[in-house]
Simulated assay, not measured.
Amino acid sequence: MALIEGLILSTTDYRENDLLVKLFTKEAGIITAMARGAKKQKSKLAPVSQSYTWVVVDGVYPKNQQGLGFINSLQESKIYKNVVTDLTTSAYAALIAKDLTVAFDENVKQVDWYERTLAIFDQLNRKKDPQVVANIVELQLLPVFGVSPNWQRDPLSGKEVGDFDYSDKYNGIIEQAHFDMDDHRLHLDQKTVYYLRLFSSIDIRKLGSVTLSVPTKRAVQRVVDYLYDRQVGFQPKEKRFIQKMAAFEGQLSIKPRKKEND
């Protein structure tokens, strides 16, 4: 038996009354644990059925770093209420959770990313822009996926200040003097480049108020999606749901046409 501290990323029904719980734990990274009877009415394990809840449980880690762990009883729990109740925030939380579960192998300790993940969900719970938070996570996870764009300086001149664009050819930013060396650069505006550079390195725990215009948010998202499509090869269904939700909200924002007079 052990005390297991972690954040519930997702749950899956298992048999009639049991759950498989995906936990990002402090001591063992991401694990999958069975919570027997958690779906029963009045079960003391009911809190572990809710994603985006921080818990401390009595349980057993997966044996020999393989298979399932077990959750036997609940000691503490804290739900990230706004993450659960706000539809848009919940959608981005689901995307972040999926990114984490794909990026990291199970049963491998990830101390830094565990602390970062708690900070990420704390920022979501504090009603920070969920798209901004998700973009920060996606950009900072790229090296975990084996993709490490250079956002800091032009590799040809070493310049860190100036006007830049993103280049696949040079795997990162290049300064204006070298734009003609890549016909397929992304032609990004400087606001977009600024936020891409900022988001790739900012400490999520120190994220203050960040307000981006709609065009800039779209431009940053396009670059993030471009990198994941072309270099990571990963497009989760959670992102497609967000895209559909945004399209639907856009339709609702269109005012109906006035009827013409007869």
Results as ranks from 00 to 15, higher is better:
residue 130 P to G: 11
residue 198 L to H: 04
residue 246 A to D: 09
residue 121 F to L: 07
residue 214 V to G: 04
residue 224 V to N: 00
residue 47 P to A: 12
residue 16 E to D: 15
residue 97 A to T: 02
residue 115 E to S: 11
residue 213 S to M: 03
residue 212 L to I: 10
residue 134 A to D: 03
residue 3 L to P: 00
residue 38 A to Y: 11
residue 230 R to T: 06
residue 180 D to P: 14
residue 57 V to D: 09
residue 122 D to G: 15
residue 219 A to Q: 09
residue 121 F to M: 11
residue 123 Q to D: 09
residue 119 A to N: 12
residue 86 D to F: 14
residue 82 N to R: 15
residue 18 D to T: 05
residue 30 I to N: 01
residue 71 I to A: 02
residue 130 P to K: 07
residue 112 D to Y: 10
residue 153 R to G: 01
residue 110 Q to A: 03
residue 108 V to T: 06
residue 48 V to I: 14
residue 102 V to E: 14
residue 147 V to W: 08
residue 31 I to Q: 12
residue 164 F to L: 09
residue 245 M to H: 14
residue 95 L to C: 04
residue 159 K to E: 14
residue 79 I to Y: 09
residue 48 V to C: 03
residue 254 I to G: 02
residue 222 R to E: 14
residue 27 E to Q: 14
residue 237 K to G: 06
residue 20 L to M: 15
residue 58 D to R: 13
residue 13 D to Y: 00
residue 217 K to D: 09
residue 100 L to I: 11
residue 147 V to C: 07
residue 133 V to Y: 00
residue 214 V to E: 14
residue 165 D to S: 07
residue 12 T to D: 13
residue 24 F to T: 08
residue 260 E to F: 04
residue 152 Q to M: 04
residue 186 L to Y: 15
residue 117 T to N: 05
residue 116 R to C: 06
residue 88 T to R: 13
residue 148 S to R: 15
residue 27 E to H: 06
residue 230 R to K: 11
residue 124 L to Q: 09
residue 241 F to D: 12
residue 114 Y to C: 01
residue 103 A to E: 01
residue 235 Q to A: 04
residue 63 K to V: 10
residue 244 K to C: 06
residue 30 I to E: 02
residue 141 L to W: 09
residue 38 A to Q: 14
residue 242 I to G: 08
residue 90 S to Q: 10
residue 47 P to C: 10
residue 32 T to E: 05
residue 77 S to M: 08
residue 105 D to F: 11
residue 25 T to A: 03
residue 210 V to G: 07
residue 256 P to W: 05
residue 79 I to G: 08
residue 41 Q to W: 01
residue 33 A to P: 01
residue 142 L to I: 10
residue 17 N to Y: 10
residue 100 L to A: 07
residue 249 E to N: 08
residue 92 Y to I: 09
residue 141 L to A: 08
residue 68 L to Q: 09
residue 204 I to Y: 02
residue 207 L to P: 03
residue 117 T to L: 05
residue 54 W to V: 03
residue 44 K to N: 11
residue 201 S to N: 07
residue 81 K to I: 15
residue 35 A to W: 14
residue 56 V to P: 02
residue 76 E to F: 07
residue 71 I to H: 03
residue 14 Y to N: 01
residue 172 G to V: 10
